[in-house]
């Protein structure tokens, strides 16, 4: 029994035939799981950033401000609305408790998105497409991103960042 010592040294006990079958199946599944992740790096179209640099809050702040000044087309709720050209570097800054600027993107066009925070960790959660990318202060999380659906998108912060966390909501437009 499990609560007492086995009759003989445990390693000398033979495996049952059902155990052998199951462990073989399980090993095959484990190998498949392990290989499928790198395989998808080559064939999949949704992979995490392979490019990230350390960036101080001040530097990122300056880069975002420069980006806004360059492509600003309007304002909404006190935030700049920015329409960057295709294939350009685009920036979103997370800070307590807002995402800025508001991006106007084109569907089917690739952009180089730079995500960082100038204070806490934030969670860049875009709804209703429903994906989340982690935003960490001191790091520029760089992603080549191509919107494949159009509409009005809401950016919710889903990493607790302080008492106003639930008010940290941003916008993004794709047309």
């Amino acid at each position: 029994m499990s609560l007492g010592s086995p009759e003989k040294y445990w390693w000398d006990e033979p495996l049952d035939k059902d155990e052998k079958t199951w462990v073989t199946v399980a090993i095959v599944w484990a190998i498949f799981l392990t290989l499928y992740m790198p395989y998808k790096h080559f064939t999949g179209k949704q992979n995490p950033s392979q490019e990230y640099t350390k960036v101080s809050g001040d530097k990122f702040d300056a880069a975002v401000d420069k980006f806004i000044a360059q492509y600003k087309v309007g304002e909404e709720k006190g935030l700049a609305v920015v329409a960057p050209p295709p294939n350009s570097d685009i920036f979103i800054r997370g800070q307590q408790f807002k995402w800025d600027p508001i991006l106007k993107l084109k569907k089917g066009v690739q952009y180089k998105l730079h995500l960082s925070s100038i204070d806490m960790n934030h969670g860049f959660s875009v709804q209703p497409v429903n994906f989340t990318i982690q935003v960490v202060p001191g790091y520029d999380n760089v992603l080549n991103i191509t919107p494949t659906t159009s509409g009005v998108f809401t950016i919710i912060c889903n990493e607790y960042c302080g008492l106003g966390h639930h008010t940290m909501v941003g916008r993004m437009y794709v047309d």
């Binding site: 709720k77 006190g78 935030l79 807002k98 969670g123 959660s125 709804q127 209703p128 429903n130 989340t132 809401t154 919710i156 912060c157 889903n158 990493e159 607790y160 966390h165 639930h166 008010t167 940290m168 909501v169 941003g170 916008r171």
Partner: peptide, 23 residues
């Protein structure tokens, strides 16, 4: 959660936020 509802969030109606979204 599969609808994107965040964890650790006090108000998913986003009542006090500048932009509105309903799950």
């Amino acid at each position: 959660g599969s609808f994107g509802v965040p964890r650790r969030h006090w108000d998913i109606t986003l009542a006090d936020a500048p932009f509105q979204y309903s799950f």
